[in-house]
């Protein structure tokens, strides 16, 4: 195999550029404000592990993490439950109606979140769900559906027609076709959508702040974190809180990313 030193160097450089902010965040979480500003990339002179405890207690991150996990999980279950059958139907239908429906989903991209904010607030108020986690659980899947359906439709269109016919001849109905043929083959797509949307749900701030609110019982971790900001913020504590916020989603991503790679490479090589 031919060596490509330039490519290797560039790859490492790119990796370093990506790692630099993470390193900065991690070391800042163990420093005082003064150190963060005077020695930004140096290791801490004194490792302030108590910053994590302070952030956890002060912003009540435990409850906030629980709320974020709950909202994200329910939202992702609902998203997949709605997007997978919709994508299946669109992938299997080549009619004008299907194209119109696909176009309608694509139009969802054209609506900027800010434009949807006020109508969504009004909707939450009218539904009696303002200031609750439940509204966020319902709203997030709705906002995620356009991208999820379009992505999954493309993945499901790669299912060979012969395989579908064969399964149908064996008596498989829609449910069996979906669960036994389409979903397994489109698994990389399902995992991709899951990762993508989980990250989006976890990081969502605007609607979580405006509609769910800052009450400690219901607020998400993205809303809890800014409570650490004051006129003279302890940036070490804020960075520690940010690490605690990022960590669960990083772990989830790492686990799911491996599954995605496995799914993508499964069957790629004949044995």
């Amino acid at each position: 195999m031919r060596k490509r030193p330039l490519a290797t160097v560039l790859s490492w450089l790119y990796a370093l550029i990506l790692a630099a902010p993470l390193y900065y965040l991690a070391v800042s979480a163990l420093k005082t404000n003064i150190e963060i500003f005077t020695r930004p990339f140096a290791l801490p002179a004194a490792w302030l592990w108590e910053n994590f405890h302070t952030a956890w207690e002060t912003a009540r991150l435990g409850q906030a993490l629980l709320n974020s996990v709950l909202i994200s999980l329910v939202a992702i279950v609902l998203t997949l439950a709605l997007a997978v059958p919709a994508a299946y139907a669109l992938a299997r239908t080549d009619s004008r109606a299907a194209r119109v429906i696909t176009g309608a989903f694509s139009a969802g991209f054209l609506i900027p979140p800010f434009a949807a904010l006020i109508p969504t607030v009004v909707l939450a108020i009218n539904m009696g769900l303002f200031g609750t986690r439940e509204f966020q659980m319902l709203f997030l899947p709705a906002s995620a559906l356009p991208l999820s359906v379009l992505l999954l439709t493309q993945f499901m269109r790669t299912v060979p027609a012969a395989l579908v016919e064969s399964a149908a001849l064996d008596g498989a109905g829609h449910w069996r076709l979906l669960t036994r043929v389409f979903v397994p083959i489109a698994r990389p797509g399902v995992v991709s959508v899951t990762i993508l949307q989980l990250l989006t749900f976890w990081n969502e701030y605007l609607f979580a702040l405006t509609i769910t609110g800052t009450s400690p019982d219901v607020r998400t971790v993205q809303v809890a974190l800014p409570t650490l900001i004051s006129d003279a913020t302890n940036l070490g504590v804020l960075a520690a809180g940010t690490v605690l916020t990022v960590l669960p989603v990083y772990v989830a991503y790492s686990l799911m990313n491996r599954r995605m790679q496995e799914a993508l490479t499964a069957g790629a090589v004949k044995e």
């Binding site: 607030v121 939450a124 108020i125 303002f130 200031g131 702040l209 405006t210 609110g213 800052t214 009450s215 400690p216 809303v223 800014p226 409570t227 900001i229």
Partner: peptide, 22 residues
């Protein structure tokens, strides 16, 4: 006391809550 912490946007938060009947 049911305490809600107001962030930088505390004015917007309060106004929205009042509009929502809360």
């Amino acid at each position: 006391i049911n305490l809600t912490e107001g962030l930088e946007e505390i004015d917007d938060q309060v106004e929205t809550s009042i509009a929502a009947g809360k």
